Amino acid sequence: MALTSIFYDGPVTESDRAANRAGAADYGVYGPNDFKVTAHPSIPYAVLVKAGRAHGHGVTDEAEIDQVVNCPSLASGTRWDLIVIRRNWQPELGGPSVLVPLTAGAEAVIPASRKIGPGVEDDQPIGFVRWQGGTSAPVEFIDMRTWAGNGGLFARSTKVLGYLAKVGTEVVINGVTWNYRLGTNDTPGWTSTAPLMAPIALAAGYTPFGGGYDPSVHTEKLELGRVFSEGTIGTTAASINVDKARFRYKLGDVSAGHRPPFQKILRPPASPQLGDVTVYVYPDGVVEWECTQTAVLPKTGANGFFIGLDGFSWPAA
């Protein structure tokens, strides 16, 4: 059974308008399983698109039963196909919409063959499917659907960002909020609430402590410009000789964009043999440390050398 499409040319009922979500966002599906792309249980090189409703650019489409979409066979190698809902406003009455597989190639990238033309002909991505040569069943799926609600969009894969790029778009993906905004010189781009991680470039003789602790020493910058440090620092040598008390040793450099506007003074946990340890983070990114005791410390063990940087915070300059 073909799709049923409304809001092309032709009659529309008041019930149609009451249920219509087109206009809330460019694209979307109505429920968690609507138009979900899954494997076909018996037909080779075919997928099932689950029954439900989807909308795009003013048109609502309904599949009363699961729909079969046949994809080309593959003798060898790997191929991704993108399943789309194709809407065509050009026939005399418009529609109905159809489900079409587009060949994407060796990577799951939206292909150039995708039609972009609301009001003329336009494709709504709903799922990537990966085929392996000699295997007639799909081996992997990537969900490309979006859900539009009262507060914005929700999706499952960041690959949807490739077709949602319109200024003002906000979408939540795996707990991270993405916004398509105007940036420097009014150049549009995606920003997110995910922390931007950058390593602290450690000076010679220092390395992440390891041993089950953070495998790297880094800073994370949140969307609002707050920077947090993470990691525990050890030494690369078999032992380290701290021969001067109250002397500032260079520990490393914080990357540009993560540096504080003013000097920061931190009191981190460290090897007890060092006495009181102080870490300084300067606006030019340099990180130094000093202690109140001299000591010769081994690399590891109960008396091993360490300086912990977990959880310290400052605003980015």
Rank of each mutant, 00 (worst) to 15 (best):
G58L: 03
N303R: 15
E92H: 11
C291F: 03
A148W: 02
R79N: 12
S76A: 15
A2C: 00
V68Q: 15
V176C: 08
F305D: 00
P260N: 07
L222M: 13
P268E: 09
Y30R: 08
V176R: 10
P118H: 04
A2M: 07
P32E: 10
E64F: 14
G275I: 04
F228T: 08
A237T: 07
L309F: 06
E230W: 14
E288D: 11
K244V: 09
A295S: 12
G95Y: 03
N150R: 13
Y282G: 00
N20H: 11
P11M: 08
N185K: 08
G56V: 00
W190H: 03
G189T: 10
F141K: 09
A295C: 08
L251Q: 11
D214M: 10
R259N: 08
E62M: 09
R87F: 06
H40Q: 10
D81H: 14
V227I: 06
V227H: 00
L161T: 04
G119W: 00
N70Y: 13
V167W: 01
S313L: 10
P269V: 05
R79Y: 03
K264F: 13
G28E: 00
L224C: 11
G183W: 03
G28M: 01
A106R: 03
L161G: 06
S76F: 12
A270I: 01
G210A: 08
Y249N: 14
S229P: 07
G162F: 05
L48C: 06
W314I: 00
A22Q: 08
A18V: 09
G285Q: 01
P315R: 12
T300K: 14
P44H: 05
G10F: 03
S5N: 02
E62W: 04
V37P: 02
K250P: 15
T135R: 15
Y45N: 15
L82C: 11
E223M: 09
L164V: 06
E223Y: 14
P118Y: 03
R53H: 05
V217P: 04
V254N: 01
R246K: 14
I43Y: 07
L266M: 13
G275L: 05
S5H: 02
V277F: 01
F228K: 04
F154G: 13
P261Q: 05
W147M: 10
E230S: 12
Y8A: 06
L222C: 07
V49K: 00
V59L: 02
F306R: 04
P208N: 04
Q67D: 05
S271Q: 09
W178I: 01
V254K: 01
D284T: 10
G301Y: 07
G162R: 11
P44K: 08
L224P: 00
R248G: 12
D9M: 12
L3S: 01
R17V: 10
V98C: 05
Q293G: 00
G134K: 04
A22R: 03
S216L: 13
A54W: 04
Q293C: 05
P215T: 14
D26R: 10
S113K: 07
